[in-house]
Amino acid sequence: MLGFIIQRFIQAVGVMAVMSVIVFFGVYAIGNPIDIVIPPDATQEIRLEAIRRLGLDRPLYEQYFTFLANLLQGDLGRSFVYNMPVLELIGGRLPATLELVLISVISATVLGVSLGIYAGYRPDSWVSKTIMAVSVLGFSVPSFWVGLILILFFAVHLGWLPAGGRGDTVMIWGVAWSFPTLNGLSHIALPAVNLALFKLAMMIRLARAGTREIMLTDTIKFARAAGLSEATILRRHLLKLISIPIITVFGLELGSTLAFAVVTETIFSWPGVGKLIIDSIAVLDRPVMVAYLILVAFLFVTINFVIDLVFALIDPRVRDGASA
């Protein structure tokens, strides 16, 4: 078990190293941000001085190592535009995004898996057919459009829920959260639904396919032959067996939802990192872009690492080092 953890940890560090190289050279290979930092009418001296100050005159690999050394000390540089440490900038906005993403993915998973198992268990009932038809829609309709319709209906037409912003927050452990207050909840409702819908469709499909496959296996037939009730079979056998694909996808989706939050945050003016990155891309604020990408990569790697650990907990075959 320990060997397994160490092995996966080393892999994770390796992936992070590769990602940092790709991200750094990807972002730094193009465009010249100096034009954004200094006014266009600045003299050549001011220009050169700024270039020197930002370290843009040195060779790229040197810049990378400086960047890496700083990164390891937790210093991701300063934003050209906001002129403040990137870490602080992103750190201040990350909780909003994480809150939104976690609420969406968790509710989509719980609801999606339940509906999907039902649809897989009774594939011919009209309820199942309705579930699947709706999930096809959720799959193909672009997320931003769903967001627009949600605003149009619930905020503009019915006036029940606010169309944007974060609302009241409560400080817990020095971080602002929306979910403990009613006003905060009303603000997070629409963006969370927006973000969750696509994931919901995916979870339904996954759970349905998994259920159909598992219910046809000899494991289930054998359990039935032993006289287990359907409820027990669903609870003890199916849920356990289906958790493996679900957890894999849950991890992947957590990462991709983090990225997709960019769209939702823009539509609902949700003050998270997604909106920050869109703004930074528009003005070529390199340190923020690099930091955001590194952060996303880091979260990806961390999620995968945690998922591997969860697997080891659930699946004895993984635990015993039989390579998955």
Partner: peptide, 16 residues
């Protein structure tokens, strides 16, 4: 009345 099957690898649940 009970039944056993051909493939013992497939009949038992690997996670229990």
């Amino acid at each position: 009345i009970s039944m056993i099957f051909q493939d013992p690898i497939a009949t038992l649940n690997p996670l229990l």
